[in-house]
Design a protein around this nucleic acid. Structure first.
Length: 244
DNA sequence: GAAGCAAAGACATGTCACAT
DNA sequence: ATGTGACATGTCTTTGCTTC
């Protein structure tokens, strides 16, 4: 199966959001999810004419169209010989209830961040598989997949190793060998990255943010955040939230 | 009240050496 | 390559204090 198409297929099966890959000359390489309905309601062609605002860098761009319609453009140059983009969308502002039954307004950027991270994760994994890189170790890959989908729950090496039926000490050495970092470092870094989205895109308190990404207490969350981001969560929020 | 910080103790994790 | 035990190390929790 074509490399780019297999990425789109996995992405679409994960989140059911239309996605397409285009070349630098704006010609479609592949597209999935753009049926007649979407093409009629949200024309995916000539997006340039409908743009009302945009934010982000050239390689990771948010596009806002009329009527609260958003797209995210993600560079795939790393995976496609230096050429091309993914276009994810359309999607709209969403209001949902979190685990505390509090209504949270998720700005489109949080959806976009999640979706662009997802497609980059999938791309990276397939890219590494293609190169036969060590990250394709089944235990390490399973553990990373587990972190990606359960980071907000309590995760211990012991439970993970029991689940995978592998020795704990052996798993630690495997994880370090194939990722270059320890399991807890990897997990905390992932949680911090997820929390950044909540800090910049929601009005949740720091405690709620900490709990939402799997930290049991706010003090420790702040310490870990500072370690990876070189600033406190509130500093990060004040710099990013006001700019949106 | 929310957030940040520090310190101390418990215990989970990482590493090493060695065995299979 | 895989698995295990021992032990050092680092993570995490708890508590209490200060600041805004």
């Amino acid at each position: 199966m074509d490399f780019i198409f297999s990425i789109l297929k996995d992405f679409y099966s994960c989140c059911n959001v239309p996605v397409k890959a285009i070349d630098y000359d704006l010609v479609d390489i592949h597209k999935i999810g753009y049926d007649d309905y979407f093409d009629h309601i949200y024309p995916s062609d000539d997006i340039g004419k409908q743009i009302t605002s945009f934010e982000g860098s050239f390689l990771n761009l948010n596009l806002e169209l009329q009527n609260d319609i958003y797209y995210r453009i993600v560079s795939i140059s790393k995976f496609n010989r230096g050429r091309g983009f993914f276009i994810i969308g359309p999607f709209r502002t969403n209001i949902i209830s979190n685990k505390f039954n509090t209504k949270v307004l998720y700005k489109p950027s949080i959806c976009a961040n999640y979706l662009s991270n997802l497609i980059l994760d999938i791309s990276d994994d397939k890219f590494n598989q293609g190169l036969n890189r060590p990250s394709s170790n089944p235990y390490v890959r399973k553990a990373i997949e587990y972190i990606h989908s359960n980071y907000y729950d309590e995760i211990t090496i012991e439970s993970l190793c029991n689940h995978m039926d592998i020795n704990k000490c052996y798993f630690c050495s495997l994880f370090k060998k194939y990722t270059g970092t320890t399991f807890s470092n990897f997990l905390n870094n992932f949680r911090v990255e997820k929390s950044k989205m909540l800090l910049s895109d929601t009005n949740l308190s720091l405690l709620d943010v900490a709990v939402s990404v799997g930290f049991n207490n706010q003090n420790y969350y702040s310490t870990v955040f500072k370690k990876f981001a070189n600033q406190s969560p509130s500093q990060y929020r004040s710099l990013t939230y006001l700019n949106k």
